[in-house]
Structures are given as structure tokens and as C-alpha cells.
Design a binder for these strands. Structure first.
Lengths: 247, 247
DNA sequence: ACAAAAGTGTTCCTCTTACACCCATGA
DNA sequence: TCATGGGTGTAAGAGGAACACTTTTGT
């Protein structure tokens, strides 16, 4: 069969990462079940079908706003998942029925987003029936959503080394340890705290506040803010890496 | 208008890079014109509509084989271009007519591929009516094909630092200078030849052959091959980079 | 003989890494 | 007073950057 496919439906699925100061989390929803006996309580990534006159980034923003109540959040495309059989017949029938459409194929585009996991966010998302799971603990998602998640994590790892997106996951004022924990969680490695502080402070990208952590039963840590101007300047000044890592 | 879009056509466009030992090139084709008076000789990236029962990578491979005669080449997805107005009405009419389809919207997915630019390849592609242009000299492509090209170049730069794809652009036996030229062309920088050789040889990823360049009017350079085993071992042994480049 | 690119070592300096103890707080 | 994580400096070694001359070939 060589005919050109013209009635694909395109969807977006969002991998929404959050960080609570210790662990990297991802926002999952439970599918409105189409057969309560067999498919109750299945977890998936939040997603939606693309609408007419809407770009994919717009569709992803819409999903994000519906899930978190937030606009203008960092959002980035990862991969597109196009296997004609990624959605089996039963799923397809359910999808067509649920959206009131008729299509032979659903191609999906992955996006990932980063949000600060504070109390407001937690109460909003739980009110929506969504839940934050530790990324390491997520095991079974419907369809190919596990693939979409792993893919997003890989992209996050690459991006976090090159841009300031790490700070999208932290509150405005944060401790050095929180930043270190974030990097350790994303990469699953340990970092030497003394060397980390040394580099971090000498980089000049932090502004020291005069506030401290409160109500912790150990010496309270100082809070810092990102110096966006300094970061941007550094970004600009950094010469391209020339030599491949395989040398 | 909030209705779900169900009749999108999906296409792939391929950015096929080649390297001739000095400059980085890209393969372009001239669109079969739909109005000889106004649209003669417009350059575009080779592409195709996705067919039923075909994944996007399969469609991209098909385009690649049609353009270069080669199978099993390195091929990687870049981004998806989904602006509902990326194809204007006149273009859309032509596309529908040309493919014998009826659709309101064409979303395209970018791929990039790497090929060795030898005499065989040159004669094959020119016989197809395609042409290799210096990447730096490409200025006007139809629709958003310039965006797709820049995007692919950015991805190539990232990938070349991390994997062995550079060698996909070189002949089996190559000189140190060719490899250096390739990196310089891709990044637009100069590399110190002595330091480069030092690192390259101490990395152990090259196999020295006993062959030399021929018919050059200067001291002939030795030819080397990639030691894939050594490369893979190095790849595996390399610990993840932990510290962000912004520190 | 000349032009053009190949090939070759050393020095300096910066950056990375490894490592252990005292401090401030809440319970 | 105890448990917990915050905060601090140094020394040794590895790796990166800068730099100039001789060699081999074709014309």
C-alpha cells in the first residue's frame, strides 16, 4: 500500500518535570477509562489532539496550562513518535470516540516542561486528579508513553548542561544544596560539595541574599538567586566547544 | 475554531550533508515547477509525503535512497515544523495537485543525513538533477526550508561532538587534515594542528595504514582508518559529564 | 629552486580532584 | 547534648594552549 496518508491526527504529549528540593518528579494523569473492568486507573502523560489553526507548541502550551494552571513556562519539543501501530485498534477506537473524530492514525509529538514544585502547584495538580511521581519510580505507562518520558529525560540532561533551565525547576531563592541535589537527581551521580561551591561562586552567576533557610534542624543554609544578567553575559562570551569529547 | 484537526498530511524533508575534504555541502533539488513563468528553478530540500503504514524514519530513508541511491545511511530526526501557515494557499494547491491528495495542512518533519561525497555520489546526484551547494552559500530556499537547514546544522554540531558520525562524512581512509578540516568547516573555527594531532593519536581511535596520499604537490599525508572497536570502548568508558558548562 | 602542506616537542599555566573538620540549629 | 546538614582551604597532578622549524613532494 503506497498511497499517501492524509488523515493523520496529530497529538502532543507533555512530560512535565518538577523538583521538590530532593527528587525529580514527573506529572502523570489517569486516563478516563474506556472499560472500567480492564483499564481502570492507567497512568499516562498529559496530552491533547492538535486543533485547526494551532501550532504544535501552542497545543503543548494548552495542555500545560490545563494541567498546571501556568502560562509562559519553559517548553521544548523532543521527538515525534510515528509508528503506525503505536496505537492499537482498541485504543484507536477509544480515541476516535472520545474526541468525536475519525482517523486511521495518531502521530504524537513529545514536549517537556519544567515547573517549580511549590505548595500551590501541588494543590492545583492534585485537585485536577493528577499526581507527581518520582521519575525513577515510573514503570508502566500506557502506549509508548514510557518511551516519550525517557526521551524527554535524555533531552533534559543535555539541555541542563548548556542553558539556565535548571533554575526553572528551583524557587526564586534557593540554597546551594538544592541546586546540587537537582543536578545529582537529573544525572544520578554524586558531586563533591566543596568543589561544587568553589566553581559555583567563582562563576558569578549567583546573587547572595541576606536570607536564610528557616525551621530546619541543622545549621540553616543561605539563600541565593540567579543573576540572569551575569548568566547571559557568560553564555554569550563562551566560545564554542571545538574539540569532540571522543578525543 | 476549536475543532480537532484530522486531515493533516505529514511530510519529511531531508538535509543531506556531504563533505568533499574541504567544505561542508548540502544536497538541494529544484522543484518541479508549477508555474514556469514565476517559479522556475526554485531550490528546496529533498522530501516526500508520508505514506500509509510507513513510519517517519522509513519515509526519510525512502527520500534518501531516491536522492543518493544509498540505503542504511546515518539518518536522524531534527524538529517538526507545524505552523499552520508555513505552506501558503498557492503552495498548498500545488502540493495537493502534485500528489493527488486533498488536505488542509502539511506538517513536516526534518531529518538530516550524512554521506561521503565521492565521484560516484557526485555523478549519481547530478544525474538526478540535484546539486551540492556549500552550506555557507545557501541563501534562498522555498517555504521554511532555510529554517529546516539551520536547525539540522545545529543538531549536527551537537552530535558530532558526542558520536562517531564525523566519520560518516569521510572516506574509509582519510588524512588527519581532512578530519581537522571537517571539524573546522562544521564549527567555523580554527584548530591548532599540533595539539589536534597529539590528542587524536593519543586517543587511540585511529588505525594507521601504510598508504599515503598520491599526486599532491606537497609532502603526501598518511592515511588512517577509524578504529571502531576502540571508539566504542571509549564511548562506553566515558563517564557522564556532571558539571554544567555554565560553571 | 620553489611552493605548499605534512609532520614533530616543550613549556607554562590553568583547572580538576581528593580530602577532614568545625559550626549553627531544632529536638 | 546530640543529630543533622552547612560551610570552609590546600596540595598534587592532569590536561589545555601557545608556539617555529624541517621534510617531502610536484612543478
Amino acid at each position: 500500500m503506497n498511497s499517501v496518508q492524509t488523515n493523520s491526527a496529530i497529538s502532543v504529549d507533555c512530560v512535565i518535570f518538577g523538583f521538590d528540593g530532593a527528587d525529580l518528579k514527573v506529572l502523570l494523569v489517569r486516563r478516563r477509562t474506556y472499560d472500567p473492568l480492564y483499564h481502570d486507573m492507567e497512568l499516562k502523560l498529559p496530552g491533547a489532539m492538535i486543533r485547526e489553526n494551532e501550532t504544535l507548541p501552542q497545543a503543548a502550551s494548552r495542555v500545560l496550562e490545563a494541567s498546571t494552571g501556568l502560562k509562559g513556562i519553559y517548553l521544548k519539543q523532543t521527538s515525534i513518535f510515528s509508528d503506525p501501530y503505536r496505537v492499537d485498534e482498541e485504543e484507536l477506537r477509544w480515541i476516535c470516540n472520545y474526541h468525536g473524530i475519525d482517523t486511521d492514525r495518531v502521530v504524537t509529538v513529545g514536549y517537556y516542561a519544567l515547573v517549580k514544585l511549590d505548595r500551590g502547584m501541588l494543590s492545583y495538580t492534585t485537585a485536577q486528579g493528577a499526581e507527581w511521581k518520582n521519575v525513577d519510580d515510573v514503570k508502566n505507562l500506557i502506549m509508548d508513553h514510557m518511551d516519550i518520558l525517557s526521551d524527554a529525560l535524555t533531552v533534559l540532561q543535555k539541555e541542563i548542561l548548556l542553558s539556565s533551565i535548571a533554575f526553572q525547576l528551583l524557587p526564586k531563592k534557593f540554597t546551594v544544596r538544592q541546586l546540587q541535589n537537582l543536578l545529582e537527581a537529573v544525572f544520578g551521580v554524586e558531586i563533591d560539595n566543596r568543589n561544587f561551591r568553589k566553581k559555583l561562586f567563582s562563576s558569578g552567576i549567583l546573587i547572595e541574599t541576606d536570607e536564610m533557610e528557616k525551621h530546619v534542624n541543622h545549621k540553616p543554609a543561605r539563600l541565593y538567586m540567579l543573576n540572569k544578567t551575569a548568566f547571559a553575559a557568560k553564555e554569550k562570551a563562551r566560545k564554542v566547544q571545538i574539540l569532540p569529547s571522543w578525543l
